[in-house]
């Protein structure tokens, strides 16, 4: 059976539409587009408590997303949380005294790492560690502290 010209055309259109759909999913619906511009570099930060931070949580500077968390593990000696993140844009250089904090987006949103650049002349390189860190705010601890201080305030009669 030889395909007619119409059949060939229709099959061509079908394949093109399918590939286009895949392209749409890749570029429009997923995060593939954000991987442009080089491999980026890794940074490590140790937190007392990384809270609800997850793998692939965003890393931001001044509210702009510049990378993602790649892995979270536990340091067996200090019992700190070791967060490894990848900065996607290799053009972004961070001073050595940059600090990292874990914040929550909105009241119930997901948690992310925020980097605040310092003022030193030297820059962080691939694999370097961020020394200044601030842990995630755990809501239960906060409420506990609040109740505790309230209880102290009230004079007992």
């Amino acid at each position: 059976m030889r395909p007619t010209k119409t059949v060939e055309l229709l099959v061509g259109l079908f394949v093109a539409a399918g590939v286009l759909a895949l392209f749409f999913l890749a570029m429009r619906a997923s995060n593939l587009a954000e991987f442009g511009g080089g491999e980026g570099y890794r940074l490590i930060a140790r937190f007392e408590n990384s809270g609800g931070l997850k793998i692939r949580s965003p890393v931001t500077i001044a509210g702009v997303r510049v990378g993602r968390v790649r892995s979270i593990s536990i340091d067996n000696e200090t019992f700190q949380s070791v967060v490894e993140m990848v900065i996607n844009h290799s053009t972004i250089t961070l001073p050595a005294d940059t600090s990292a904090s874990i914040y929550t987006e909105g009241l119930l949103g997901e948690q992310f790492v925020s980097l605040e650049p310092g003022g030193e002349e030297e820059y962080l390189k691939d694999g370097d560690e961020i020394e200044l860190t601030q842990s995630a705010i755990v809501l239960e601890e906060l409420i506990g502290q609040f109740l505790f201080s309230k209880a102290e305030e009230t004079p007992d009669d």
Binding site: R2, P3, V7, L10, V11, L13, F14, V15
Partner: peptide, 15 residues
Amino acid sequence: GLLIVQLHSVGVLSV
């Protein structure tokens, strides 16, 4: 050619 005819009846007609 055999494949294209079948791609039409299996794929295109399901679109």
